[in-house]
Design a protein around this nucleic acid. Sequence first.
DNA 1: ACCGTTGTAACCATTGTAGTTACTTCTTGA
DNA 2: TCAAGAAGTAACTACAATGGTTACAACGGT
Lengths: 138, 138
Amino acid sequence: MKQISSRFSIAVHVLILLAVSPKECTGDFLAASVNTNPVIIRRIMGMLKKAGLVDVRAGVGGASLRKEPSQITLLDVYRAVQVIEEGQLFNFHDNPNPNCPVGRNIESALRAELTEAQSAMERRLAQVTVDQLISRFQ
Amino acid sequence: MKQISSRFSIAVHVLILLAVSPKECTGDFLAASVNTNPVIIRRIMGMLKKAGLVDVRAGVGGASLRKEPSQITLLDVYRAVQVIEEGQLFNFHDNPNPNCPVGRNIESALRAELTEAQSAMERRLAQVTVDQLISRFQ
DNA sequence: ACCGTTGTAACCATTGTAGTTACTTCTTGA
DNA sequence: TCAAGAAGTAACTACAATGGTTACAACGGT
C-alpha cells in the first residue's frame, strides 16, 4: 500500500521552521533540521515558491514565508507539493468492457462517491493552519 | 503523485457484478467484464474472501456475496483490498534531527491532524453501501 | 478420470519516490 | 571585480508498489 509522499510532512516541517525561526533559513540549515539531503529541500522549496507560500532568494540564500502562518492551511501545502492531482486521489481501472452494463455505469456513480470522500479529507486539511500547529507545541 | 490502487475500484465493480448477476460468476467472466487479467481478479477475490465479503469455490468455480449488498460499505472494500494500512495514508519523513525543537515536536501534532483528515475520508466511505451504488444507476 | 476453475509462484515493465553527485547560475560582500 | 556561498537543476541510482503475464498445482463436480 503506497502512501502519500513524505514531501507533504517535510513541507509542513519547513514552513513551521520558517515561521518560528528569527532569521532566514538556508536550504542546508533546513535539510539538517529535517535530516535529509539539501536537494530534497530545494525541490520542495521550489514547489512552495511556485505556490506563492515562500520567498526564496538565490545567491545570498535564505527563505521566508510569504503569507502569515495563520493564512497557510495544510490543504495549501498539500496542493503545493502536488501530493495528488486535484480530485485524483483514487485510481480507476479504465477501459471496462463496454458490453458490461455494470462497467458502463459504475464509473460515474463510484467516481462521484470517491470525490466526495476525498473532499471530506481536504476540507479537514483546509481547517488547520500552520499557526495552529505551532501553538500546539509551544 | 501516486494514487490509491485501482484494486479498490475493481473490487467495487466485482461486488456490484456479484450483487446484480443472477448466476454465480467465474473469475474469467469477472475479468472480461472489468477488462483485465483473470489473475488480477483472483488476487482481489482472495482479499475480499479473506475479509469475509465473498465466498469463492475452487474447483467448480463461481463466487457469491457473503453479505447483503446493503451491509457492505465502501470502507469495508477499501480495507479489504489493503489500499492503505489503517491510519497510514500519509507518509512521514522519519528521523528528524533530534537537536531541532520543531522536529522533535512536529510529528505528534501533525500526525494527529492528518489522522483526523484521513478519518474524515473514511467516515464518508463508510456511509456508502454497494446497495446504494447499484440503485444509483438502475 | 476429466475438465474447468481457483490458488499461487515467478517474472517483467512501468512508475513514483528518495537520495546523491555534480554542475550552473545568482547575489552579495570583501 | 571577483571569490564565496547558496539556490536551481540535470542526471543518475536504488527501491518499492503496481499491473500484467505465464505457468502450474490443487480442487471438485459431472
